[in-house]
């Protein structure tokens, strides 16, 4: 399995009156087509780790390498370009732009990347939304959609530029059980059928147990042996 993303001694310290270590010395390697759960108690650094992996935040120490490229020396524009092409984010809250329709929201990353023509972008956005069961909601604005539908639009937006890596920060955290299951199934399908790598932060241990691999954090550190036998592996380098 090819390595998609790896970290080495990744550390993020919040410099306040009393410095707070959000993530400490995390070294890991995640390959293509992996479905990885990041678990841990509240405040353990799960989201912080995800933001570091997604280049939204800069580590205090250590490195993040994506597809063999060390991101430590990248400037903000290069990091933004890396996010645009290689990373799709799904947050607990959908964060759709409220003035735009579902389809327009999905088109936004494509319009930013500009690798497709106007009609192709429109078609791809429609296809993505249709694949997620939203064919009848293309022209609805976020406030006209249910919570589960919004989250599926957010997933479609994350997939717009066909990135190899999807980072999901508690994607089902604000959904009812039925919608949660739908979103989970979608994420799983992305891995199994489209070959994406999905790293999802979750509190739901049952959901985490259905993923390939589990990274458990306590106080910002990756713990060994936290995984149950249900998981395919817990290998940290």
């Amino acid at each position: 399995m090819n390595t998609l993303i790896e970290t080495k001694d990744l550390t993020r310290i919040l410099r306040e009156a009393v410095p707070v270590a959000l993530v400490r010395d995390v070294s890991l390697s995640i390959g293509e087509r992996e479905f990885v759960a990041v678990t841990g108690p509240s405040g353990s650094g799960k989201s912080s780790l995800l933001y570091l992996l997604g280049l939204l935040d800069r580590p205090t120490d250590g490195t993040v390498t994506i597809r063999g490229r060390d991101t430590a020396l990248m400037d903000e524009d290069e990091r933004a370009a890396m996010r645009l092409v290689n990373i799709g984010f799904v947050f607990q809250f959908h964060f759709l732009l409220p003035e735009f329709t579902a389809r327009e929201n999905v088109e936004i990353p494509m319009r930013k990347l500009r690798h497709l023509g106007r009609n192709e972008m429109r078609q791809r956005a429609s296809d993505l939304l249709a694949a997620l069961g939203l064919a009848d909601h293309l022209d609805k604005r976020p406030d006209q959609l249910s919570g589960g539908q919004r989250q599926r639009v957010a997933v479609a937006r994350a997939l717009a530029n066909d990135p190899p890596l999807i980072l999901a920060d508690e994607p089902t955290g604000s959904l009812d059980s039925q919608s949660s299951e739908q979103v989970f199934m979608i994420l799983e399908k992305l891995v199994r059928e489209q070959g994406k790598t999905v790293i999802a932060v979750t509190h739901d241990l049952e959901m985490a147990s259905r993923m390939d691999r589990r990274l458990h954090l306590i106080d910002g550190r990756l713990t060994m042996g936290a995984a149950t036998g249900d998981f395919r592996s817990t290998h940290e380098p």
């Binding site: 524009d77 996010r83 947050f91 930013k112």
Partner: peptide
């Protein structure tokens, strides 16, 4: 502010 954050996460730059 939230739109700014999400757009940056999508790959928009500070200059954008």
């Amino acid at each position: 502010a939230r739109d700014i954050a999400i757009m940056k996460s999508l790959g928009f730059t500070e200059a954008d």
